[in-house]
Amino acid sequence: MRGAVDEQQPADRSDRPTGNRADVPGATGVRRALTALGLCGVAIAGCTSPEVATTAAPITLSPSAYQNKLRSANIAVAAAFDRFATAGSPQDARAELAQASAVVVEAARLLDVDPPAEVLTVHRDLLAGLRQLAVDLSQRSDQAASMELCAAPSIIASVSNAPGVNSLRAVREAFSSGRGGVSYQWGESLLAPTQFPERRLANGQLLNSLRRTGNGQIRIDNGTEHDAVVKLVQDGESIVSVYVGKGSNTTVDNINDGSYQLYYTSGIDWDDQLKTFTRSCLFKRFGTPVEFTTVPIKGGIKYTTQAVRLQSSTRENAPTTVPAQSFPR
Rank of each mutant, 00 (worst) to 15 (best):
V103R: 15
V103I: 15
V105S: 15
V105D: 15
V105F: 07
E106D: 13
A107N: 08
L110I: 08
L111H: 08
L111F: 01
L111W: 01
D112Y: 00
D114N: 10
D114G: 04
P116N: 12
A117N: 12
V119P: 01
V122S: 08
V122I: 15
H123E: 05
R124G: 15
L127P: 02
A128H: 03
L130H: 00
R131A: 14
R131K: 14
R131S: 14
Q132A: 14
Q132L: 15
L133G: 03
A134T: 07
A134F: 01
V135S: 08
L137R: 02
S138N: 15
S138C: 00
R140A: 03
R140D: 12
R140W: 09
R140S: 06
D142Y: 04
D142N: 10
D142G: 07
D142W: 03
A144K: 00
A144W: 02
A145T: 03
A145N: 11
S146D: 13
E148N: 10
L149Q: 00
C150P: 01
C150I: 01
A151R: 01
A151C: 09
P153E: 10
P153N: 09
I155R: 01
I156F: 07
A157K: 05
A157N: 06
A157M: 11
V159F: 07
V159H: 02
S160L: 08
N161C: 07
N161H: 11
A162Y: 06
P163V: 14
G164L: 10
V165Q: 00
V165M: 04
N166P: 04
S167V: 13
R169N: 03
A170T: 13
V171L: 06
R172L: 02
A174N: 09
A174F: 03
F175Y: 15
S176L: 14
S177C: 08
G178S: 08
G178H: 08
R179V: 11
R179M: 05
V182C: 11
S183T: 05
Y184P: 00
G187N: 05
E188D: 15
S189P: 05
L190C: 04
L191I: 11
A192F: 09
P193G: 06
F196D: 01
E198M: 04
E198D: 13
E198R: 09
R199L: 06
R199A: 12
R200Y: 00
A202E: 11
G204S: 12
G204M: 06
Q205K: 13
L207C: 11
N208F: 04
L210K: 14
R211E: 13
T213F: 10
N215I: 01
G216Y: 01
I220S: 04
I220A: 06
I220C: 07
I220T: 06
